[in-house]
Each structure stands twice: as C-alpha cells, then as structure tokens.
Simulated assay, not measured.
Amino acid sequence: MPMPRQPKPTPAELELLRTLWQLGPSTVKQVHEAQQRERPELAYANVLRLMQIMHGKGLLKRDERQRSHVYAVAQAQRSLQSRLLDDLIHKAFSGSGKALVMAALRSDKVSDAERAEIQQFLEDTRDE
C-alpha cells in the first residue's frame, strides 16, 4: 500500500511554519504577534483560519487540552525542506542536484560569505 502524499505548503503556510519552527508549540495569539512584527496589517482572524486549514491538511498538530489551543508543526523543518527540495530538483532541474547547486551559485542570492562557507563545507567533507 503506497504511503499517503504529504501536503505541500503554500507560500503563506511556509511563512507560518517558519514562525512556528522558531517559536515552538504556540497559540494562535503568539503566532499572530510574531508575524505582525513583519506584517503589521495581518489580522488575527487570518492567522487563525490559516492555522485551522493547516491542521486539517496535516501540516500542524493541535493540543486541545487547554482553553487556547496550542499548535505545533507536524513535520520537522529539515524533513519538510528535504521533501520540498527533492520535489524542486525533480521538477525544475530534471533530477540533477548538481544543476540546482550550480543555478543557486550563479544567482545573486548567494553572498561572498555564504560562498566561503560553502567552499569550507566542500573542503571539510572531501575526505569523508
């Protein structure tokens, strides 16, 4: 029996997941306050609705033992990122991890400090 496909988060859901990865298990109010620092116009009701949808999709777990429900991510950050990266490599780079890395390194999104860190990583792992 094949494993059920895990849902892929939308950009708004990814933003909310990043907040929860940073905060840990949190109430809607805590997530709303954290996200308002970046987006002051964000309404509490929007955060609540999105978290309810994400719970329904299986992206979040909800602890209902307290009056204010506490939400937590259902999948670890590294695990979800790996799954999304695998999907990106398959769809956009014909399954080539090398093509993805080369495209990333050609972009202006990688700073000189990040390039140095990547170079150090490659040197450190060369002998492994």
Rank of each mutant, 00 (worst) to 15 (best):
L88I: 08
Y71I: 05
A103Y: 12
G97M: 10
H90Q: 11
K109Y: 11
S94V: 03
A76H: 13
Q77K: 13
A72L: 06
S68M: 06
L105I: 07
S68Y: 07
S94T: 05
V101R: 13
A74I: 06
S68A: 13
I89V: 15
Q77Y: 08
R78V: 06
M102W: 07
S79V: 06
Q77G: 04
A104P: 03
F93I: 00
A104Y: 12
F93K: 02
A74F: 05
H69V: 01
K98Q: 15
D108Y: 03
K109E: 15
I89W: 04
L85Y: 05
L80E: 08
G97A: 10
A74P: 02
Q75K: 08
V70G: 03
S82P: 00
F93S: 00
V70F: 03
H90T: 04
L80F: 02
S82V: 02
Q81K: 01
L88W: 04
Q75T: 11
L80K: 02
K91I: 02
A99W: 03
Q75I: 10
L100T: 00
K91H: 09
L88N: 05
G95D: 06
S96E: 13
H90E: 13
L88A: 11
A72Q: 10
A99I: 00
K109P: 00
R106W: 09
L85M: 14
G95H: 06
F93A: 01
L105Y: 06
Y71G: 01
R106D: 15
S68Q: 11
V70S: 01
I89N: 07
M102D: 15
G95T: 05
A103L: 14
D108I: 00
S79T: 06
L80D: 04
V73F: 01
V101G: 08
G95Y: 09
A103G: 10
S107G: 10
L84V: 06
A92F: 01
S94Q: 13
A92Y: 03
L80H: 01
L105F: 06
F93E: 02
S107C: 07
H90D: 11
D108R: 10
L84H: 05
L80T: 00
L85T: 12
R106K: 14
S94L: 12
V101C: 10
S82G: 01
L100P: 00
R106S: 12
A74T: 06
A76T: 01
G97L: 12
A76K: 14
V101Q: 11
M102H: 09
D108H: 09
Q77V: 02
L80Y: 01
D108Q: 12
V70N: 04
A104M: 15
S82E: 12
A92L: 09
D87L: 12
A99F: 00
S96G: 10
K91M: 04
L88Q: 12
